[in-house]
């Protein structure tokens, strides 16, 4: 059975995205009352999720 094109590459890319989001959230949860740390993490999450929501797959796989 031949896999669909880019199956593995997309899987790897999304895994990295998910891990980056989890890292940002997990690190920040215990410091959520520190505005500097919390704002930075939320901004990072916005940027990462913004890329996913755009869904420009060809850019991801470059």
């Amino acid at each position: 059975m031949r896999p669909a094109p880019n199956t593995l590459e997309l899987d790897e890319h999304l895994k990295e995205i998910v891990n980056a989001l989890h890292r940002a959230v997990s690190y920040t949860m215990p410091h959520v009352d520190d505005p500097k740390i919390a704002n930075k993490a939320i901004q990072d999450c916005k940027e990462i999720l913004g890329v996913v929501m755009k869904g420009e797959i060809s850019d991801w796989l470059k």
Binding site: L21, V32, C45
Partner: peptide
């Protein structure tokens, strides 16, 4: 801020389910 982080975590988990 905590709710914002939970929104981000929820989205991360759903993206992982998609993956």
């Amino acid at each position: 801020k905590l709710d914002q982080l939970i929104v981000a975590r929820t989205a991360a988990e759903e993206i992982d389910h998609y993956r």
